[in-house]
Design a protein around this nucleic acid. Structure first.
Length: 276
DNA sequence: ACCCTCACCTGCACGC
DNA sequence: TGCGTGCAGGTGAGGG
């Protein structure tokens, strides 16, 4: 379920709690979680190593290990990491288990089975298919109004679908795409290439603002995020959205009813009066 | 190169 | 109570 802010919060929590610790052994319990590995290969490449650092690229969470490899993970819709003590039972959908030093284990659970993992060489990380094609990070210098102008101009898709394309803009998902368009006053139905030049700067600002605000909310809710037995969460940033899941409710700016439409088989929420 | 639809799963809220 | 339907914060594969 997570978008960039949620993934960032999880990566920060994991960095705090598992960076520096050893993976004694790893179990791949659902083969399709890591389709490029066998269970034996997964275990072999992750046993007896130290986690140097946990970080994020797009919506991927990366565990850099001291054996020259990186564990690349994606939570997709329902993936979560949970840190458990020896006495805790595994959750129902425990698809990978990392036994750490100091008697605890990090469990990847995923009700919907969409999550993905793979183990790659750290030196090849930037060239890995799932990383290489991602758009620049939204808070990097490379991501700018000029960059947005360039990529918008090449796309005939709706602005909403464009914003969900991680190769154009990375980090937005279904919630923050709707929210950003609302704050920019842009209609989700407008073609990306038809966003007027003057309105690109406000869109750029809105993208950064919605992500920043969600990050701030996430951080404030989880100041000391990880307690053994209580878990490391993947979701739970619930803010007061301006439009998301507000179909039929009044727009905060003009009072007219928020609409829900389907775009690319997903819901988009918007104010038809404020967003043109 | 782009664009569209479908597929991958379980579970929950809803209406009959 | 059960059963069908639609929906859920993501993305890749495979078609045109």
């Amino acid at each position: 379920m997570p978008e960039l802010p949620e993934v960032e919060i999880v990566a920060r929590a994991l960095q705090k709690v598992v960076a520096g610790r050893r993976i004694v052994s790893a179990e791949l319990r659902r083969a399709k979680l890591a389709p490029d590995s066998t269970a034996a290969g997964f275990a072999a490449r992750l046993r007896e190593c130290r986690i140097n650092r946990v970080h994020r690229r797009g919506k991927n969470i990366l565990f850099d290990l001291d054996n020259g490899r990186t564990l690349l993970t994606h939570l997709r819709m329902s993936g979560r990491f949970v840190l458990l003590s020896a006495a805790d039972e595994d959750p129902k959908f425990a698809h990978a288990v990392f036994h750490l030093d100091r008697v605890s284990r990090l469990v990847f659970e995923d009700q919907r089975h969409f999550g993905l993992m793979k183990v790659i060489k750290t030196t090849g990380l930037a060239r890995d298919a799932s990383i290489a094609k991602l758009a620049p990070e939204p808070f990097s210098e490379e991501f700018s109004a000029d960059y947005l102008t360039k990529v918008l101009s090449g796309s005939a898709r709706s602005l909403k679908e464009f914003l969900l394309d991680q190769t154009k803009v990375c980090g937005l998902g279904n919630i923050y795409a709707s929210e950003a368009m609302f704050h920019a006053g842009l209609s989700p139905r407008r073609r990306a290439k038809n966003v007027p030049r003057k309105r690109i700067e406000p869109l750029f600002e809105a993208i950064r603002n919605v992500l920043n605000e969600a990050l701030a909310v996430g951080e404030s809710k989880r100041p000391d995020p990880v307690i053994i037995g209580e878990g490391v969460y993947g979701n739970g940033i619930t803010a007061d959205w301006a439009v998301y899941e507000r179909e039929g409710l009044p727009c905060a700016k003009c009072g007219s009813a928020i609409r829900r439409i389907r775009q690319g088989a997903r819901s988009t929420y918007y104010c038809a009066r404020c967003q043109r």
